[in-house]
C-alpha cells in the first residue's frame, strides 16, 4: 500500500518533470528555432499550439469513450472519474482550439469565423461535450449521472465521424478558404517544432488527466467516508 503510493508519487513527479521540460523545449523551439512563415508571418506560429490542442481534444474525447465503455462494463466509479476528467479537459482544449483558430483566421482569412467543414464539426463537437458536462451537473444521483454520461460519451463519439462527413458533403460545393495542411515543402524546422509541440501538449494532457482524475477520486472517497460516518453515528445514536 505505502510502496504503491510512493511509486505513484514518483511516477507523477516524473510525468510533471517531463511535461515541464518538453513544454519548455517546445516553447523555445517555437520562438527561436522555427523560421517565420514567409507568407503568413509570425501569426503562423500559433499553429504550434492550435494543431496539438486539436489533437489533444480528440484524444481526450476518445479517452471518454474508452472510460465510458469501461464504466458500463465494470460499474466502477474509477472509470467514471477518468471519463469526467477527460471530458472537462477535452472541452477546455476544444475551446482553446476554437479561440486560437479564430485568432489565426482574422489576419489570414480576414474573418473570425467561417462555416468551413472542419470548423463547423469542431463547434458541434464542443456542443456535444458541453451537453455531456451539463447532463452530469443536472443529474443529481452520482451513479445515474455516471451511467447517463457514459451512454452520451459513447453515442457522442460515434457521432463525430458522421458529423464530420455530413458537414463536409454539405460544404464541399461552397467556395471555402483552403485549410492549411502540412506542406511537404515546409522547412523541416517547422515540422520538427510541430512534432515536439505535439509531444509536449500530449504530456500536458496526461498530467491534467492524472491530477484531475485523482482529485475526482478523492472527492468520491470523501463522499463515501462521509456516508459511512453518518451511518455509524446514526446507528449509535
Amino acid at each position: 500500500m505505502t510502496s504503491s503510493v510512493v511509486q505513484g508519487r514518483a511516477r507523477l513527479i516524473a510525468l510533471v518533470t517531463a511535461t515541464v521540460v518538453v513544454s519548455a523545449v517546445a516553447l523555445a523551439m517555437m520562438i527561436f528555432y522555427a523560421p517565420t512563415d514567409r507568407v503568413q508571418g509570425v501569426v503562423q506560429r500559433i499553429f504550434y499550439f492550435h494543431v496539438p490542442m486539436a489533437w489533444v481534444a480528440y484524444l481526450a474525447f476518445f479517452v471518454v469513450l474508452v472510460c465510458s465503455v469501461g464504466y458500463l462494463w465494470r460499474r466502477d466509479l474509477r472509470w467514471d472519474a477518468m471519463a469526467r476528467a477527460s471530458a472537462e479537459i477535452g472541452v477546455l482544449f476544444t475551446t482553446l482550439v476554437l479561440i486560437t483558430g479564430s485568432l489565426w483566421a482574422k489576419p489570414i482569412w480576414n474573418t473570425w469565423w467561417t462555416w468551413d467543414a472542419r470548423l463547423t464539426s469542431t463547434l458541434v463537437l464542443w456542443f456535444i461535450y458541453v451537453a455531456y458536462l451539463m447532463l452530469r451537473a443536472y443529474t443529481p444521483d452520482l451513479e445515474r449521472a455516471a451511467r447517463f454520461s457514459a451512454v452520451l460519451g459513447i453515442v457522442g463519439f460515434i457521432d463525430v465521424p458522421i458529423i464530420h462527413f455530413s458537414v463536409e458533403w454539405w460544404r464541399t460545393l461552397h467556395p471555402e478558404p483552403v485549410v492549411v495542411r502540412p506542406d511537404p515543402q515546409a522547412p523541416p524546422e517547422m515540422l520538427v517544432t510541430l512534432a515536439v509541440s505535439l509531444v509536449a501538449m500530449t504530456l500536458v494532457y496526461a498530467t491534467f488527466l492524472v491530477l484531475r482524475t485523482a482529485l475526482e477520486r478523492t472527492r468520491d472517497e470523501n463522499r463515501e467516508r462521509e456516508q459511512r460516518r453518518a451511518l455509524e453515528e446514526a446507528s449509535y445514536a
Binding site: P140, L142, E143, R144, R223, Q227, L231
Partner: peptide, 10 residues
C-alpha cells in the same frame, strides 16, 4: 444498495 450518497441496504 447504494443511492448516490446513501447506503439504503447494507
Amino acid at each position: 444498495r447504494r443511492f448516490g450518497r446513501t447506503l439504503a441496504l447494507r
